[in-house]
């Protein structure tokens, strides 16, 4: 049987196998292909050799003063951060003081109001208690004249009329 060329997934697995990233069943499948198919062996060999050619790339070294330059730049940044904090420091303090004063003034004012106002100076609860009674009376009577007459103890006619009924 003529060997089939590798498909994309098989090629991915072959490369992962060469990188030592393949284990288990997938690794065994690649090993079986390599053992039986010379074209797969050739492909693996060419991929390995192309990879090894990268060893010829020069190793780039940092310039001799790199560390010193980096540490200097760090020192500059630190000093800039400190200067910036020093510039803002008085404003931060002033803001803090202003906020504290505002809070204390509010607390003082609230305490004074509470202390100086006599108890029961404004009893809203009485109004709330009377209102439902009045409303109830109106609901029953449906007539304001009837209520006025009821409030008048001299108006005997009202009771007389009831007796007649």
């Amino acid at each position: 049987m003529k060997p089939q060329p590798l498909n994309e997934k098989e090629r991915e697995n072959l490369i992962a196998y060469l990188d030592g990233e393949l284990t288990g069943k997938a690794a065994r499948q690649v090993e079986a292909k390599l053992a039986t198919d010379p074209s797969v062996r050739r492909e693996a060999e060419s991929l390995r050799k192309a990879w090894e050619l990268l060893d010829y790339l020069p190793k780039v070294q940092a310039s001799a003063e790199f560390t010193t330059k980096t540490m200097d730049r760090l020192a500059v940044q630190k000093s800039a951060a400190t200067k910036s904090w020093l510039r803002w420091k008085p404003w931060v303090w002033a803001g803090g003081w202003a906020a504290a004063m505002l809070f204390l003034s509010f607390v003082g004012y609230s305490s004074m109001v509470r202390f100086l106002t006599p108890p029961n100076a404004n009893p809203p609860q009485l109004v709330q208690e009377t209102k439902p009674l009045e409303l109830h009376a109106l609901d029953v009577s449906d007539d304001i004249d009837f209520l006025h007459r009821l409030a008048n103890p001299d108006d005997m006619e009202l009771f007389l009329k009831d007796n007649r009924m």
């Binding site: 994309e8 060419s46 991929l47």
Partner: peptide, 25 residues
Amino acid sequence: IKSLLSRARMNLRAALKDYIFMDGE
């Protein structure tokens, strides 16, 4: 990453084809 490296190595091999010595093959 597996897929990315696979494509990268295929491209590299294609670009370096003339410099890969394959013992006459």
